[in-house]
Computed example of a mutant assay.
Amino acid sequence: MAAGGFCKLPDGRVVVALNLPSPTTADSPAAVRVLVHAQNRARALTRLRNLGMRAVYLRGNAAPPTPDEITAVLHHPDGLIWRTVPDNAVASLELWRPIRALLSRPAART
Rank of each mutant, 00 (worst) to 15 (best):
E94R: 13
N50S: 11
A17V: 08
R49T: 00
K8S: 14
G79M: 06
G12S: 14
P67C: 03
R105C: 09
R54H: 09
L93T: 06
D87K: 11
S104Y: 02
L95C: 11
L80I: 11
L103S: 10
K8R: 13
Y57V: 12
R109A: 06
P29M: 06
I81T: 12
T71Y: 09
N61F: 08
V32H: 02
D87G: 12
A44C: 06
P67M: 04
P65W: 00
T71S: 14
T25Q: 13
A107M: 13
P64D: 00
R97M: 08
A108N: 09
Q39M: 08
R59D: 14
V73E: 01
A44H: 07
W96C: 08
S104A: 13
P98V: 02
P106D: 00
R105V: 08
V34S: 06
A91L: 12
D68E: 15
H75K: 14
R33Y: 04
A101F: 10
L51E: 12
A30S: 14
P23F: 02
G5T: 01
W82A: 04
I81R: 10
N40M: 03
A30D: 14
V85K: 03
L93G: 10
P67W: 02
H75T: 11
P86Q: 02
D87N: 09
V36W: 01
L58N: 05
V36N: 06
H75Q: 15
Q39I: 07
I81H: 06
R109S: 13
L80E: 03
L35Y: 13
A101Y: 10
T24H: 15
V73L: 06
G79D: 02
L9G: 07
A62L: 05
V90R: 10
V85N: 04
V34P: 06
A26N: 10
R13C: 13
V15T: 10
L103Y: 01
A30H: 12
L103P: 11
V90C: 05
H37W: 04
W96T: 10
R41T: 12
F6I: 13
S22E: 10
L103F: 05
P64W: 00
P77Q: 00
A62S: 14
V36C: 14
D11L: 08
A107Y: 04
A26S: 13
S22F: 05
L48M: 15
P23H: 03
P23T: 01
L74C: 12
V85R: 01
H37I: 03
T66M: 13
S104M: 07
R83V: 12
N61M: 06
L102E: 11
N61A: 05
L45P: 08
L93R: 03
V85S: 05
N50T: 04
L103V: 07
L80N: 04
I99V: 11
G5N: 06
